[in-house]
Design a protein around this nucleic acid. Structure first.
Lengths: 156, 156
DNA sequence: TATTGTTATACTCTATAACTATA
DNA sequence: TATAGTTATAGAGTATAACAATA
């Protein structure tokens, strides 16, 4: 797969993040596929748990376009994991409410994902584990250099 | 951009890797765009430095399909950064040889990338910096749980 | 018969625009 | 006039298959 040594790979920060994200994503995808859902299905379904959010609100939460949300909710309905319910206050809007089956699947998915994360992090000693998460959060969280916003102040 | 708190984000390992990779990739892309090349151009051009490798060999090194390599080398030739030279030993094969300009651009790109990495890692104290890289390499390198090969032995 | 580079094709994702029914 | 959801369309990117020249 990769012919480079650990020393060479070490210098390639971009590769490290991408590879880690890709492989972890593939692992999660495979684990969730056993439940018949995709990572996006899970992402939307778990955010829909309150049963009070419209498609637009869910799209905002899940950082999805409203047009891709349509297909996702179509899927969830087809799988019997959620239903579209007319919003009482706005006849244009549809509230996404998970079915009982949907609730069970999300719970299962949560366990599966936690298992994958635990399995991956198990290869690190506990102190390194905490250190890795700290560092990643520092980089990615708002104000960090990888936050994606332009609010990063280099002078700090 | 992201409405979740640092605590919430912390629990989402997949998100942390993906976000870090995406934003770092975007930063690198923007930095390299100033030089008129893409990350892939750089990746191929730097591996072609010896001036002895064929398109097939470069595709293997860069983990690219041979068909996407065609377009990449087309670009590099159009930009005057590399040339296709017939391989002496195999009349089917083309060796990718960087031009002088290509060499200069790669060198510039190397500095630019190192600058981006340094800038990003500067937000971590030096010991955390080393710890992060150690942890990432442990996860991603061959034998690790995110190596992508199925050679990961959970019992170790 | 297999391989290098090439071209053409198909397929997935995403982004945009346009339409409806409401507000 | 603007918004929620939907549909249709177009674009980028990738993957597959087929081809000519050569091994």
């Amino acid at each position: 797969m990769d012919t480079r040594s650990a020393e060479e790979i070490r210098g390639d920060l971009s590769y490290l993040f991408d590879k880690a994200g890709d492989v972890l994503g593939a692992r999660m995808g495979a684990a969730l596929a056993d439940l018949g859902i995709t990572a996006r299905d899970y992402c939307v379904l778990t955010k829909a748990a309150p049963g009070t959010l419209t498609q637009r609100e869910l799209a905002e939460l899940a950082l999805l376009d409203k047009t891709t949300m349509v297909g996702t909710v179509d899927r969830l309905e087809r799988l019997g994991l959620a239903r579209r319910v007319p919003a009482p206050s706005d006849r244009r809007a549809r509230i996404v409410v998970p079915t009982e089956e949907g609730g069970r699947v999300v719970e299962k998915a949560r366990e599966v994902i936690a298992g994958v994360y635990a399995d991956v992090l198990a290869s690190l000693p506990p102190d390194r584990r905490a250190s890795l998460l700290d560092a990643l959060v520092t980089l990615v969280a708002p104000g960090g250099p990888l936050s994606g916003s332009s609010d990063y102040d280099q002078s700090r």
